[in-house]
Amino acid sequence: MRPRDEHKELLIRQKAIEMIVKEGLDGFGVNKLAKAAGVSPATIYIYHKDKEDLITNLCIGVAEKMMAFSLRNFSPDMDFAAGLKVQWHNRLHYFLENPLDMEFIEIMRYTNFYEKVSQMVTANFGSVLRQFMRNAEEKQQLVPLPFEVYWSVAYAPLYQLIKFHTEGNSYVNSSFVLDDQLLEKALQLVIKALKP
C-alpha cells in the first residue's frame, strides 16, 4: 500500500469540490476526478473507500472548517449582541474567503450525503449555539424561541445579504455591495427583533 501524500490528498479534495460545483453530482466520477487531479484512480482509493465515502468526507471536511471559522473569538457566555456580531462577521468572512466551499455545501445540503454533516453540526456546533441561546435567554437579552425560529431570524438576513453581495445584484439594485455600515444596520435590526 502506498503512503498517504497530504499534497495529493488536498489536490484531490479541491478538484472534487470544483467538479461538483461546476458539473453537479451527476457529472462527478472517480475516473474524471483522477484525470483532473493528475493522479491515478488507485491513488484516490488510498484516501477513500469509494465515491460515496469521498463525497461524504468532503461534506464533513468543509462543514468542520466552516464551523471552526465561525466560532473564532466566540464564546456561548458572551452577551447576546456581542456574540451575534462575532458570528455574523465570522460567517461573512468565511463566505467571502471560501466561495467555492459555500457553493459546494449549498449543493450538498439537498442530498443524502448531507445527513452525516447535519448530525455532526447538530452535535457539535448546535450545542454551542443552543448554550449561547440559553445564556442570552437567562440574561433576558433574547426572547425565548424554538431553535429553528431563532436560527431563521438571526442568520437568514445575513445569508441573503451575502447572496446579494456575491451575485452583485438584488431585486432592485444591479450593483449591491455589502459594506460594514450596511452589515451593522442589518445586524442591529435583527438584534432588536430578537430582544425581549
Rank of each mutant, 00 (worst) to 15 (best):
R2K: 12
R2Q: 08
R4F: 02
D5P: 01
L11T: 12
R13T: 11
A16P: 02
E18K: 14
G24I: 11
D26I: 01
V30Q: 00
N31F: 07
K32H: 11
L33I: 03
A34Q: 04
K35C: 01
A36K: 12
A36T: 10
P41D: 05
T43Q: 03
I44R: 10
H48P: 02
D50G: 03
G61R: 07
G61Y: 00
V62I: 13
V62W: 02
E64F: 07
K65H: 13
S70Q: 13
L71Y: 10
F74C: 09
L84Q: 03
K85A: 06
L92T: 15
N98S: 14
L100Y: 00
D101E: 06
F104G: 03
I107G: 07
R109T: 12
E115Y: 06
K116A: 03
M120P: 00
V128C: 10
R130G: 02
R134G: 05
E138Q: 15
E138P: 05
P146Y: 11
E148I: 12
V149A: 15
A154V: 00
P157M: 05
L158H: 08
L158T: 12
Q160Y: 07
Q160N: 13
L161M: 15
F164P: 01
E167N: 08
G168D: 05
S174G: 11
Q181N: 04
E184Y: 00
